[in-house]
Design a protein around this nucleic acid. Structure first.
Length: 591
RNA sequence: GCGCCGGUGGUCUAGUGGUAGGACCUGAGCCUUCCAAGCUCAUGGCCCGGGUUCAAAUCCCGGCCGGCGCACCA
């Protein structure tokens, strides 16, 4: 790991941001526990996300189960995509789908249904070779490559379930009901913050590649024909874009353009994706992502997921590597179409026309008393085929006879028997399948990015100092409260103040151990933006106040983390001032 | 998953075939009127399993975990 990564990981463990899980039992790769600071930091990030993408946009939030039945993932395409068998070439090192190697070189079809042992046998029996370099693959291990965690729902194994590999499916499968909650009015957005699981082959780089992680996803369902994003809200936002074109150029520079320019110049093809890039840029800044270590990168053609028409990632630079922290995808109607095909539901929204329209519609009404005797058990299928045909190709009914194919057999039916006619129908609207725009955030990666970008080292009075320059809004602790020394009643007063500030809804830590400087440094390392110190001047204020001196005001010092400068603040205004500092309604300089 | 390297208190580390020291941190006390000061004391450790050996934290094998490279990341 890099120097930066090593130092951050050490601090994270020592100060309670995150640590490897189950360390007492040797640890397990790819699972992390957020400590007291980390859990709060993560909560604060999630709340900032909720504020931005749910509350302020008027969307809804749901919470779906982590475990869902097999059928969901059959529909979503994850089951096939996750259940590959991999064989590695001993010579050139290339990995191949073992089932494909078998299918391509033998008469065997659907090799995917075989066990890995059986596939290995087939490879050996048939002397199959590496498709790339021709080296024999016999004796090479055939490995299961299944990124979904499998489990059983209820006793026995008859009802397999999987831990979701993305939270999105939990939204898509509930679309019919969610649409009802939205009164069937497009557009609407459904968000979810939750855990997702991928049984990664090789988890790496601390929090970056893990097996259990939190996603914050928004699925924005839109009418592709009519709905447009409120692009005016973000059109002047400057985006650091790293397009396909630039990635393929040698210099590989990013391009700083506004949302409007990017759309005009065609760098961003989709207005919805453009809108979310613009909206999100400001949000990343708000939570403390360093804009000098940030970019939006367009997916290369070969990199596009099976569902995505166009996709951009937000990436942050961590120790020299660019890491995806958010994917912005235009998923089209891929997901809803898949679930509609696999389930009993339609996954559509009824869209009423401005005016009802009258159309001529060709229909069939097959005469089953003729088809039945003629085709026996196939009659039903023939009737269905006729119904399909009239929708697809009404011209086929112009002649006196029409032919349809069912399971390879051809059936000829009199047009009259088919009951062909053209009816005039009045339609008040149509069922449309919404398209989906999806910003999908990896919360753990955001936590890591925010920590890494906040990590600073400087010198104060010739002593080295480490601090986290976290935005007050997301810092796990907002205020440290100390007595200058724990004697002469300073400790008691400081404890009272700490309670008072907690009562005002602030995240407060109290510390009276050792020297004052040490306590400041402790708070610096966990990114606490403000420290309040009760000192002897505080007491003097009390005394003059007691003496009914009109100018006698009880004050404390408030110290700002990044600059270590201090200002005196009246205790009466303290809670209000700190809340305003946390919420960004006041800056320390203006105190 | 493969290859190379590694694993000693909370953290960073020294070290040896005879079960271990240091620094920082943490706690108690003294001291201290604003930035990791000082002094005293204290807590706390050889990743797990097997083998070799009179004796293994040390050598060997396996596992787990970590770093790097390859592969993978729908």
């Amino acid at each position: 790991m890099s120097e930066e990564g090593a130092r951050l990981t050490e601090l994270a463990k020592r100060r309670g941001f995150f640590l490897q899980s189950s360390g007492a039992y040797g640890g397990v790769a790819g699972f992390y526990t957020y400590g007291p600071q980390g859990a709060t930091l993560k909560d604060n990030l999630e709340n900032a996300w909720r504020d931005r993408y749910v509350t302020r946009e008027g969307h809804m939030e749901i919470s779906a189960p982590d475990v869902m039945p097999e059928a969901v993932f059959e529909a979503s395409g994850h089951l096939d995509g996750f259940d590959d068998m991999i064989v590695e070439c001993p010579e050139c090192g290339a990995s191949h789908r073992a089932d494909h190697v078998v299918e391509d070189n033998t008469s065997i079809e659907e090799a995917e249904s075989f066990s890995t042992d059986r596939i290995a046998e087939i490879i050996e029996e048939n002397d199959l070779v590496c498709p790339d370099c021709g080296t024999e693959l016999a004796d090479q291990p055939v490995e299961d490559f299944n990124l979904m965690f499998e489990t059983n729902i209820g006793p026995g194994s008859s009802s397999p379930g999987y831990l979701r590999p993305e939270t999105a499916q939990g939204i898509f499968v509930e679309f019919p009901q969610l649409s009802e909650y939205a009164r069937n009015q497009l557009p609407f957005g459904v968000a979810q913050i939750g855990k997702a699981y991928r049984n990664e082959i090789s988890p790496r780089k601390g929090l970056i590649r893990v097996r259990e992680f939190t996603q914050a996803e928004l699925e924005h369902f839109i009418d592709p024909e009519e709905d447009e994003p409120p692009i005016a809200r973000v059109e002047d936002v400057t985006l650091p874009l790293y397009s396909v074109e630039q990635q393929q150029a040698d210099d590989g520079d990013i391009q700083e353009v506004t949302v409007r320019e990017a759309l005009e110049e065609g760098i961003l093809a989709d207005e919805w994706v453009a809108f979310y890039l613009g909206l999100s840029k400001g949000w990343y800044e708000r939570i403390g992502v360093d804009m000098d270590r940030f970019r939006f990168r367009q997916h290369l053609p070969g990199e596009l997921a099976h569902y995505a028409a166009d996709c951009w990632d937000a990436e942050s630079e961590l120790a020299g590597d660019w890491v995806e922290i958010t994917g912005f995808a235009y998923r089209g109607d891929y997901d809803l179409k898949k679930h509609a095909a696999h389930s009993e539901e339609e996954f559509t929204v009824f869209k009423q026309y401005d005016e009802p329209v009258t159309v001529e519609r060709p229909t069939v009404d097959p005469d089953m008393s003729v088809l039945g005797p003629e085709f026996g058990g196939d009659a039903g299928a023939v009737a269905e085929a006729l119904e399909e045909l009239v929708e697809r190709e009404p011209d086929a009914f112009e002649d006196t006879e029409v032919t349809v194919e069912v399971d390879g057999d051809t059936y000829t039916v009199d047009t009259e028997t088919a009951g062909y006619s053209v009816e005039e129908v009045t339609e008040s609207g149509e069922h449309i399948r919404p398209h989906v725009v999806e910003p999908s955030f990896g919360v753990g990666r955001l936590v890591y990015t925010v920590l890494a970008h906040a990590y600073e080292e400087d010198e104060v009075d010739d002593e080295q100092r480490t601090y986290l320059s976290l935005p007050p809004e997301i810092a796990p602790t907002t205020v440290g409260v100390f007595p200058l020394m724990d004697k002469d009643g300073l400790g008691e007063r400081a404890r009272e103040l700490a309670e008072e500030l907690r009562g005002a809804g602030l995240e407060v830590t109290y510390d009276d151990s050792g020297a004052i400087g040490r306590r400041y440094r402790r708070q610096d390392e966990v990114g606490t933006p403000f420290c309040v110190t009760v000192d002897y001047e505080t007491q003097e204020g009390n005394e003059t106040q007691d003496a009914a001196d009109a100018d006698g005001t009880e004050t404390v010092t408030v110290r700002e983390r990044d600059t270590t400068t201090q200002k005196r603040v009246a205790v009466d205004d303290l809670a209000e001032t700190l809340v305003a500092l946390r919420d960004g309604d006041l800056s320390f300089d203006d105190l």
